[in-house]
C-alpha cells in the first residue's frame, strides 16, 4: 500500500511537469497544426538560464534568501524563453505557414537541434549541479510515503499556472481571440483579430510555462544539461496527444496520466516481465502509449476531432 501511494506521489510530480509542458504543445498545435518540436528544448533553456542567474546571484549577493534567488532566476528565465519563442516563431515558422506540410515540421526539428547545439556551446556538454533552493528533505505525511517540499511546490505551482492559463483562455478577450484564431485564422482575421500577434503570443505563453517547468524539473533532480529538454518534451507531446491534442484540459489530464503510468510502470515492470525488463526501460512507456493512442483513439481522451489539415 505504501509503495502504491508512493508511486502516485511520484507520478503526480512528474505528471504535473509534463502537463505544464504539454500545454505549450497543445496550444501551438491547436492554433497552427504544427508540432513545435523545439518546445521541449525551451524547458532546457529555462533551466540553464535560471542556473546561470543563480550562479551570478550567488557571486554578487551570497547572503540572499533561497526563495528570493529562485524567484529572481525565474524572472530572468521566463522572459528569456519568451523572447526565444517569439524569435523562433518569427524567423523559422511564420515564413513557412503556407508551405507544404512537411516543411514546418522539418524546420522545427532543425530548431530543436540548433537550440541544443547552442546550449552545448554556451554551457558545455557536462551535467551541471542545479542548486536545490527548496528543501529536498522528505517528509512523511503518511507512514512510509515520502514527499519533498520541492515536490509539493511543483504540484502547487503547476496547478496554479494551469488554472491561470485556463482563466486567461476562457475569461479574457485575449483568450477569446486565441480560440477564434484556432478555430479559423481567416475568419478571425476578418473579425479584426490580429492573428499574427495571437499566434506569436501563443508561442510566448507556452514558452513561459516551459521555462517554469524547466526550473522545477532541474530543482527536483538537482541537475541540468543541454539535452535535458528533449525527452520530457517528447513525453509532454505524448501527454498532449493522450489527452486530445488542441485541448487544454486534455493536456493536463494527459500529463498526469502519463506521469502515473510511467511511475507505476517503472515500479512494476520487473514483476510484470519476470525480471527480464527493468526500470531502464521506463522511457518506452511514453512511446508505447503514444503509439497505442494514435492507433486506437487518435482523438485522445478528451479530444473531439482530429481534422485532416494536411
Amino acid at each position: 500500500m505504501e509503495i502504491f501511494l508512493q508511486q502516485i506521489v511520484n507520478g503526480l510530480v512528474v505528471g504535473s511537469v509534463y502537463a505544464l509542458v504539454a500545454l505549450g504543445y497543445t496550444m501551438v498545435y491547436g492554433i497552427l497544426g504544427l508540432i513545435n518540436f523545439a518546445h521541449g528544448d525551451l524547458v532546457m533553456v529555462g533551466a540553464l538560464t535560471a542556473l546561470q542567474t543563480m550562479m551570478f546571484l550567488m557571486g554578487v549577493a551570497p547572503g540572499m534568501s533561497p526563495i528570493a534567488m529562485l524567484s529572481l532566476s525565474l524572472l530572468v528565465a521566463i522572459p528569456v524563453c519568451m523572447l526565444l519563442a517569439f524569435t523562433m516563431e518569427r524567423l523559422a515558422y511564420r515564413p513557412l505557414r503556407n508551405a507544404p506540410r512537411l516543411a514546418p515540421l522539418i524546420t522545427a526539428i532543425g530548431v530543436s537541434f540548433l537550440l541544443q547545439t547552442l546550449a552545448m556551446i554556451i554551457w558545455g556538454r557536462n551535467y551541471h549541479t542545479f542548486p536545490q533552493l527548496i528543501s529536498t528533505t522528505p517528509i512523511q505525511p503518511i507512514e512510509g510515503v515520502f514527499i519533498t517540499p520541492i515536490q509539493i511546490t511543483i504540484i502547487v505551482v503547476s496547478a496554479l499556472m494551469m488554472a491561470g492559463l485556463v482563466l486567461l483562455v476562457t475569461k479574457t478577450k485575449l483568450g477569446r481571440a486565441m480560440r477564434a484564431t484556432a478555430e479559423n485564422h481567416r475568419v478571425a482575421a476578418l473579425m479584426g483579430v490580429d492573428t499574427n500577434m495571437i499566434i506569436a503570443l501563443t508561442f510566448v505563453i507556452g514558452a513561459a510555462l516551459a521555462a517554469v517547468a524547466g526550473v522545477m524539473f532541474a530543482s527536483n533532480y538537482g541537475i541540468a544539461h543541454y539535452g535535458m529538454g528533449f525527452m520530457p518534451g517528447l513525453k509532454a507531446f505524448t501527454a498532449a496527444v493522450l489527452g486530445g491534442i488542441g485541448n487544454l484540459g486534455g493536456a493536463m489530464l494527459g500529463g498526469i496520466v502519463l506521469g502515473l503510468v510511467e511511475s507505476f510502470g517503472a515500479g512494476y515492470i520487473e514483476h510484470l516481465t519476470f525480471g527480464f525488463l527493468n526500470s531502464s526501460y521506463q522511457d518506452i512507456f511514453a512511446f508505447m502509449i503514444l503509439g497505442l493512442v494514435l492507433i486506437f483513439k487518435p482523438t485522445g481522451l478528451l479530444g473531439e476531432r482530429v481534422s485532416d489539415r494536411a
Binding site: 503514444l290 487518435p298 494536411a310
Partner: peptide
Amino acid sequence: RLRGDYLAIVTLGF
C-alpha cells in the same frame, strides 16, 4: 493511418 507529423513522432519513438 497516421498523418505526416504524427508519423514522424511515432517513428522517432520507434
